[in-house]
């Protein structure tokens, strides 16, 4: 879980353009369905929420269940009204919050 999240956002866009954003974070997404080699259940530990905002406004959000694959990947679109910064957060079951951000310039 040491890896920093990977995000792909275009560096620039025209005003009002709809762009594509991709994100990938390193996480086991332990489903809670598995058992260890001694037969004990391995407790669930997943990223349960992913959020993308632009200058404080909600752009895209996802509630994740354990059926999302390890290393959760998202691709979605966003409308870019002006230059600003996209912020991304991933919430872990254990309370950890992983964050990343990416600026975009409107030409």
């Amino acid at each position: 879980m040491a890896s920093k999240p990977r995000i792909k956002v275009p560096k620039s866009a025209s005003a009002g353009e709809v762009i594509t954003i991709k994100t990938l974070i390193s996480h086991e997404m332990e489903s809670g369905q598995r058992k260890d080699k001694d037969g004990n259940p391995i407790p669930r530990q997943i990223i349960n929420k992913f959020t993308c905002t632009f200058e404080g406004q909600m752009v895209f959000e996802c509630d994740l269940d354990p059926a999302v694959s390890a290393n959760p990947y998202f691709e979605f679109n966003a409308k870019v009204p002006s230059s600003g910064t996209f912020k991304f957060t991933w919430l872990d079951d254990d309370g950890s919050v992983y964050e990343a951000e990416a600026p975009i310039e409107v030409k």
């Binding site: 709809v18 762009i19 679109n77 966003a78 409308k79």
Partner: peptide
């Protein structure tokens, strides 16, 4: 702000 209702992910 999503612009389009489109999403891709990977599932089990």
């Amino acid at each position: 702000m999503s612009g389009e209702a489109l999403a891709t992910t990977r599932i089990r």
